[in-house]
Design a protein around this nucleic acid. Structure first.
Lengths: 133, 133
DNA sequence: CTGAATCCGGTTCGATACTG
DNA sequence: CAGTATCGAACCGGATTCAG
C-alpha cells in the first residue's frame, strides 16, 4: 500500500472540505479544469468546447472554482466584454490529480463494464437490485 | 505541466465513465474506500465508523462499488448474517488516487479558505453572489 | 459577449419502519 | 446483523429570459 498512512476519517461527514471536493469533481469542473490545463480560455470557448454544458452551469462552475482559488478570472473591455479564465497556482497543482483520476476511470472502462456484467449475470434478476445507477 | 498530454474532452459530457467517476467520488464512497484501504470491514463497522451515514446510503454505496468491481462482498452465516467488504485489486488501484485527492483538499483547506475570503471581501457584498456553494 | 434571475421537473437523500 | 421499502424534503441541473 503506497501513499501516506490514512486518517481513517479522510473527511468527517460534515467536513468543510467536502463542498470543495465536490465542486472539484463535479460534472463540469473536471472538463473545465481539463481545458484550462491546456491553456487559458474565454467563456465562449469553454461553452463551445465543452459539449452539453449550459451557460448557467458553466458560469456557476467557473464562479465556484474562482471563488475557491483554483481559477483566475480576467476581464478586459466593457462593451463586448471579454473574460479569460486560467488556472491559478493552486488550480495547476490539483488539476492533474483530478484529470488523472478521470483518465484512470476511462482507461479501466472495460474492466468496470466486465465487472458489472459479471455481477449482473451472477443472479439472473434480483428485481430490487436491478435499479440502475 | 506533468502527466500525460490531455485529451481535451476528458469525458464527453455523456461519457459512460461519468457515473463511475461520480460514484467513486461521492460523499460516502470516499469514506468507505478510505476505511477499506486500511483493512476489510463489516457492514456494522462501517456504519458505526463513518459518522453521519445512514444505512440506506451505506448499503447503496457498497452495492454500487461492488457492482463496479471496486469492492468484494463476502457473506458467512445466515442467522446472524455476517458480511465483510474488502477492496478488490481494481479498488486497491484507484483508492489511493481518490483518497489522496481528498487529503490534498484537506491539506489546502487553509489556502482555499483564504482565497474564498479574499474573493468575498473584494466586493463587499453582491447579495446575489452571496448564496453559498 | 458574458452573465444573472426565475421557473420547474427530475433525482437524490435522510428518517423511519419493516424483513430474513 | 444486514439490509430493504416507502415517503416527504431538499437539491440540482436545464431552458428561458433579461441585463451590463
Amino acid at each position: 500500500m503506497r501513499g501516506p498512512a490514512l486518517p481513517p476519517e479522510v473527511f468527517a461527514a460534515d467536513c468543510e472540505g467536502r463542498p470543495v471536493f465536490d465542486s472539484l469533481t463535479s460534472r463540469w469542473a473536471v472538463l473545465v479544469l481539463g481545458a484550462l490545463r491546456v491553456r487559458p480560455h474565454r467563456f465562449a470557448e469553454l461553452a463551445g468546447g465543452i459539449q452539453g454544458v449550459s451557460e448557467k452551469m458553466l458560469a456557476q462552475t467557473l464562479r465556484t472554482l474562482t471563488r475557491d482559488g483554483f481559477v483566475r478570472r480576467s476581464v478586459t473591455g466593457t462593451v463586448p466584454m471579454q473574460t479569460t479564465y486560467a488556472l491559478t497556482e493552486l488550480g495547476a497543482e490539483v488539476t492533474p490529480q483530478v484529470v488523472e483520476l478521470a483518465l484512470w476511470v476511462r482507461r479501466h472502462a472495460g474492466d468496470i463494464r466486465a465487472a458489472r456484467a459479471a455481477h449482473d449475470t451472477d443472479r439472473p434478476i434480483p428485481p430490487a437490485v436491478a435499479n440502475r445507477r
